[in-house]
Design a protein around this nucleic acid. Structure first.
Ligand SMILES: [Mn+2]
Ligand SMILES: [Mn+2]
Ligand SMILES: [Mn+2]
Ligand SMILES: [Mn+2]
Lengths: 219, 219
DNA sequence: AATAAATTTTAGGCAAATCTAAAAATGATT
DNA sequence: AATCATTTTTAGATTTGCCTAAAATTTATT
């Protein structure tokens, strides 16, 4: 079945909100994420239900069906592959690629997606460290430890960012932090929970808000 | 001004039909090219005129304005760059890329287009030998000699194909002819105007219909 | 010039996706 | 339990792009 661009975006939105365990999603949450009105969402929910892409009972909320989830994951795969392409091959900054990928993710060609993946070396993570599902829809495991919860003095590797807004991405880049970089937490300030970081030979301070948006792992 | 995908396709269609000299275009011709109905085209013509993208008088025909032409050429540039990418970087066959490029051509990002062009080495011609306009909309000159009109015995280089249908592209590929290949016309059969070709060490016969769809030049 | 054929436009409708305003259902608070 | 607030749905419109059938215009043919 051939989905419209709009339907695809709704499925992706529901997938993001409900998380991997497919919780029930509120109509308002979808409206907010897609920057539209609840009434509009209700219309689309009825339509998606009629196409068996979501489970939906009026006033109860919505949840992706297996098919709906497969569609959503497929689009997410394309989105993250294109972001990787834009950064790795065309030299875009990681803060510039999301909006372009938002368009490219809707291009329909199984063969294109798989050729692109192959061309990129079947990457497991996109430029923001987000996991790229494989052709069967399976996500690689990614670091779930954030910098604010890390042990003092431990060697850590930067694996990704939780917040992908251009503001945060620009800030992290300005600090000179890149994916794969190694760093240590030297101390946590009791007053405001800001942390002191050692990165290369430099030391600098990071707010708790920034720290909790950076994924790290020991390997 | 932000054009819809549909509007872009109409502009491109009018550009193709009217040729470089911007002749008046019949409503029916547009309908046929876009596989739609004349009544639908009329609606769109009024809309495009109101946006100053075409000149249009009822019953007289339509013609792109300067802005309209710039838009059309910009989309064509993207189309041909993406086709080049698909063949050169992703290893697609030249008969497979048109439909995918038809989607990719509508992705909106000046920066993406120019980065892509640069990544491909600012190609002048696409995989079918069609000229790729530069960022200012200027087309490179391409061979306009077709194989059916070539001199006997002259060394010729294959520069492109006039017909880009998958059937013809597959046929040419099956014959082992690629862009840039060198060949000679050994004789023309008076009966059906078919021609005898020498290509590498092989000789084979080509129908007049095939020959007139292959562009060649002496250089 | 009159008629026939073709092209093109107009009229009227339909489906998708959106909106605002009003009604209905649910949940929270006295 | 009754009331108030929030969430969600319904009702009624709008815009875009498309359709069919009928009318108007242009072009070709007697
Ligand atoms: Mn993104
Ligand atoms: Mn999208
Ligand atoms: Mn093409
Ligand atoms: Mn197109």
């Amino acid at each position: 079945m051939q989905l419209s661009l709009t339907e695809e975006n709704y499925l992706k939105a529901i997938f993001f909100i409900s998380g991997t365990e497919s919780n029930l999603v509120n109509t308002n949450a979808v409206a907010e994420r897609l920057d539209t009105k609840a009434a509009t969402v209700t219309d689309m929910l009825r339509k998606l239900k009629s196409k068996d892409l979501i489970h939906y009972e009026p006033y109860k909320g919505s949840r992706l069906t297996l098919t709906g989830k497969q569609q959503a994951v497929g689009i997410l795969r394309k989105h993250r592959l294109w972001e990787t392409f834009l950064v790795e091959k065309l030299g875009f900054g990681w803060e510039e690629v999301h909006d372009i990928a938002e368009q490219l993710e809707h291009v329909r060609s199984r063969k294109l997606t798989e050729r692109l993946a192959q061309y990129l070396g079947n990457p497991q993570f996109d430029p923001h460290g987000d996991p790229i599902p494989d052709a069967e829809g399976v996500f690689p495991q990614r670091a779930n430890l954030t910098l604010d919860k890390a042990e003092l003095g431990e060697r850590l590797y930067v694996k990704g960012v939780k917040d992908s807004s251009p503001d945060f991405l620009n800030y992290v880049a300005k600090l000179g932090i890149q994916l794969g970089d190694s760093l240590k937490v030297l101390q946590v300030e009791p007053f405001d929970s800001s942390i002191l970081i050692k990165h290369d030979e430099r030391e600098f301070r990071l707010s708790a808000q920034a720290a909790c948006n950076i994924y790290v792992s020991q390997t």
